[in-house]
């Protein structure tokens, strides 16, 4: 284990972003495990939607309720409908009014029809989780809230929602809440972001674009770019000829060993090339995580990563 807590885990709120399929959810959990190991009470939030449901959350049956995964580590899956109800509960103190609203189809129509409202109440819930003085019944205090943000594309519009609403609604409660959320998201002292990448062409391009959008369009800080799933560099450059020889061996197992080694060496070279591209394309500090040789990327795999993340 690398001792010392990575600086970005000292923040209050951390958004983990990245292209689909780069291991964003696993990294979010791994960071949560690490922060908890370092003694920070942490909650990892998943934004519940059909396109963003991770296996780990699914297996732990995490829903719109704070669930304890390990010591000091909690998880919640934020469903916009539930977040909306909770928001209304906090806004309307009169029970009769709430009941009337929840029962009315107008409310359902309104919630479904207003573009961006789901994202807004989701970010509102994230904000609520990060408060030390929580208004929600039985709300625990967390030192750190880690958000497994929706994949890029959707991710950017998700994080832009507070600003969008602050502009659309010029006055009124939505306007002031959206402003408050935007202030939180863009405050570098409290809030940071991580971009997860893979050493492949498309993810590297996407990472550079995402960093640019997070900083310039949203006004956030990118604390780290995490290059995920790097293969171990097992074979020295001068071993290629020897490995080539193995690939022609009469012993089928030795031949297979040679073939697998050749592929691995070529893959490492391709990864290195992409890693070098990434270094030229991003400004944030870069950390790396190793490829995890496990059949499934589960909680155990996340633990392995938690110990080495920097």
């Amino acid at each position: 284990m690398n001792w010392g807590i990575p600086d970005f885990l000292q923040k209050k709120l951390l958004f983990v972003t990245g292209k689909g399929g780069v291991g964003k959810s696993t990294v979010a959990i791994a960071l949560g495990i690490r922060a908890a190991l370092e003694g920070r009470r942490t909650i990892v939030c998943e934004v519940a939607s059909s396109e963003n449901a991770s296996r780990i959350f699914h297996q732990a049956a995490v829903g719109f309720k704070e669930v304890e995964l390990a010591n000091d580590l909690w998880a919640i899956s934020i469903d916009p409908e539930d977040a909306m109800k909770e928001y209304v509960l906090l806004q309307l103190k009169v029970r009769a009014m709430r009941d009337l609203l929840f029962r009315s189809r107008v409310f359902t129509y309104f919630a479904a029809a207003t573009p961006g409202l789901n994202e807004l109440v989701t970010i509102g819930k994230i904000w609520e989780l990060a408060q030390l003085d929580r208004k929600v019944k039985h709300g625990r205090k967390y030192d750190l809230v880690i958000v497994d943000a929706p994949a890029t594309g959707h991710g950017i519009s998700f994080l832009q929602t507070p600003r969008t609403f602050a502009r659309i609604a010029r006055v009124g409660p939505v306007h002031s809440q959206a402003e408050q959320l935007e202030a939180m998201v863009t405050d570098p002292a409290q809030t940071g972001s991580i971009v997860v990448s893979l050493p492949e062409e498309m993810p590297v391009n996407e990472t550079a674009r995402l960093e640019h959008e997070l900083v310039d369009d949203i006004g956030m800080t990118v604390d780290r770019v995490i290059m995920n799933a790097l293969y171990p560099d097992r074979f020295p450059a001068d071993a290629t000829r020897a490995i080539d020889r193995l690939a022609a061996s009469d012993d089928p197992e030795v031949r297979a060993g040679g073939r697998a080694a050749l592929s691995q060496a070529r893959r490492v070279a391709a990864q290195t090339e992409q890693f070098e591209r990434l270094k030229k394309m991003v400004s944030a500090p870069i950390s790396t995580l190793p490829f995890v040789f496990r059949p499934e990327i589960d909680l155990h795999a996340a633990r392995q990563l938690a110990e080495v993340v920097e």
Partner: peptide, 28 residues
């Protein structure tokens, strides 16, 4: 449409406007 949506729609709209803000409601 309001009749389909059920009785008390007027009240519900008033509550909604209060939560959302009149201005945003008008824009929508």
């Amino acid at each position: 449409a309001a009749r389909v949506a059920g009785r008390g729609t007027g009240v519900v709209l008033t509550i909604l406007k209060r939560i959302v803000g009149f201005d945003l409601f008008a824009d929508l």
